[in-house]
Design a binder for these strands. Structure first.
Lengths: 358, 358
DNA sequence: CTGAAAGCGCTTACAG
DNA sequence: CTGAAAGCGCTTACAG
């Protein structure tokens, strides 16, 4: 086969001109153009589809040849070159408190799914719910020139989001809302109400709440929905029976300890997430109380573990995967210059043995 | 303040020349050079530190001025321009079966930590232990021009790694090993032995294994270590008492179902991960067996939940965070052109009530 | 010690 | 219908 003295062959490291196994440098538009005797701009136009005006990028025969060779060579555009030129990265950064919390992991799976559908790349980073780390990782994301951000770690007590907003960087919140910033969340107030209604139906009047951290809207809203519904039923839950906590099992255990040490141990505990509920269950057991018999417990999020616990856990199912997907959809709208309305997704109560006394 | 008719000011979108709130485009080397009346290459040399040969990048006075202005302007290099020019992305891709498994989430936390220390960016993606998705996400990572890859989802039954290896793309395995490819794993055989020794000491002779999936070296090695130790003690575990399973609770439950349906229910079950152990515990309860009283159960990985379960779970602690860090260290060595030895990290048995009969 | 040029791989008006 | 040029923001020999 005759070989043309092309720029392609001139590459010093491609001895012999044939692609051999080993560190092959990726095909470029230029190399395709050279092989076909065309100009790189023609190849670019064809491979990018549109020409803007209705006109075609090339004759159908030329286009055909280009597409075939690109396919055979496994051409993949260099994203750095594209981004540099277009000033668009197609990259979005996702900040989560911690991926080891399955709720966040599932949300990120939804994000990843939807992003792939939209041709966007994503990366995720842990911020441990620490304001300094949130700041640092946000800056890191901006350094990477993300087109937009998704915050799953929003908190009311920092100015970070307002700063980002002032810089006109598109972003959405997911799982937790902050101020009026666009957010997709579960209707956590309703979720809290559903648990309250269930408890009230069963006749539990002496109840307590493991309320989670006050910086998280999820915790605040779930607690508020629960206590409001009790209020409506004419029952005011005493302040000492609403205990702030961390989101993990240890936090649930500590909170339960305070609750159960009180004079009148409650007959039912609502924990604003499943891990805290599991910690509370452990604590109850240490106090000689059998969950589902002596004390009712309900959690939130319906983690995969909830139905598998020795005493299956009543919990509120939240559409985590869909929240992740929805966050991307909202951000895509923002990136296209449109506005995005905040969304509230419906929760569903799943009743299991842990909350059924008698 | 007098204003120079500089290229900086010529930018059509910066009306008035002053930086105002809003979508400010990032500072570039060029804009720093213009403000200082220097050439962009000088600025680059200074901000990059070294000149290669021992010579300085600029006079200390010039260097000083450059560094100050860069700092004041919050200059951050455009990574796309840098990567395009240097043919290096400083990006590494991490493939995991699923982030919703806390073991993988913790490994990734370790990866993220170490990568940050080395000035590397990372991104992680879920592959669901599905060969087709592994292939697709690996290609996606290569399209993004990663400098290297970390696989936490290695499986013996696909050729993917050999293909990547042939392309001379640096990579390391973490958590699971495959063939002779460089890997950092826990000494899972030893972990299995530790459980066997514990069971033997307690006098459990009629035992079963929930063995996990055969494509994962973690599962295979833990099972092998356990059965080998029993063999050494003169006890051959019947084949029907070693049951393959998925890694989740449902899988553990199904496997336990098969084990407990047998004529002679075993007195102790070793599940190769904590989730499977939890599923097995649920199943045992359904069979009227109390965990820690009628039947002993041990898991693997010492998930945060293990000590919090109603009957705290005996488990083998594995250094997950350190595995993640170690994977990055190995990859960094590879990227520098050095070789990397596979590493085996030590496990530790944590005994709790679930395995203490009597 | 500093400048000038070339080039990484693309895209996008603009010609012809 | 296709080509040629400019330029995104860097880095890196090479001059002087």
């Amino acid at each position: 086969m005759g070989r043309l003295p092309s720029r392609f062959e001139a590459r010093p490291c491609e001895k012999g001109g044939d692609v051999v196994a080993g560190k092959a440098r990726p095909t470029t538009l230029q190399s395709i153009a050279d092989r076909l005797g065309l100009h790189v701009s023609t190849v670019s136009r064809v491979l990018n589809g549109s020409t803007g005006d209705g006109g075609r990028a090339a004759s159908s025969r030329t286009a055909q040849r280009i597409r075939e060779l690109a396919h055979d060579l496994g051409y993949r555009p260099n994203p750095y070159a594209t981004s540099l030129r277009t000033q668009r990265s197609n990259l979005i950064g996702v900040l989560v408190p911690r991926l080891s919390d399955p709720v966040l992991a599932f949300i990120y799976e939804g994000v990843e799914d939807a992003a792939t559908d939209h041709g966007l790349s994503t990366f995720v980073t842990n911020t441990q719910d620490d304001a300094r780390i949130q700041e640092a990782r946000t800056n890191m994301a901006l350094d990477r020139r993300v087109d937009g951000l998704i915050f799953a770690d929003g908190r009311e007590d920092t100015g970070l989001l307002d700063r980002i907003s002032a810089q006109e960087i598109p972003f959405v919140l997911v799982n937790r809302h902050v101020g009026d910033h666009p957010a997709i969340t579960c209707d956590n107030r309703l979720g809290g109400r559903l648990v309250a209604e269930h408890f009230l139906e069963r006749g539990y009047e002496n109840v307590a709440v493991i309320a989670g951290p006050s910086y998280a809207s999820t915790a605040v809203d779930r607690t508020a929905g629960f206590t409001a519904r009790y209020e409506e039923a004419g029952i005011t839950i005493p302040e000492s029976m609403v205990v702030e906590s961390a989101f993990d099992t240890a936090g649930g255990r500590r909170a339960a300890e305070r609750i159960l040490r009180g004079r009148t141990a409650p007959i039912a505990i609502f924990a604003v997430n499943d891990f805290a509920a599991i910690g509370a269950a452990g604590c109850a057991r240490d106090h000689g109380l059998m969950v589902g018999t002596d004390i009712a417990i309900a959690g939130f999020n319906d983690t995969p573990l909830a139905p598998e616990l020795p005493v299956p856990l009543t919990s509120v199912r939240t559409p985590v995967h869909e929240m992740g997907r929805g966050a991307v959809e909202m951000l895509v709208r923002l990136l296209a210059g449109n506005t995005a309305e905040s969304r509230l997704l419906p929760p569903a109560l799943v009743i299991r043995e842990s909350s059924l006394l008698d």
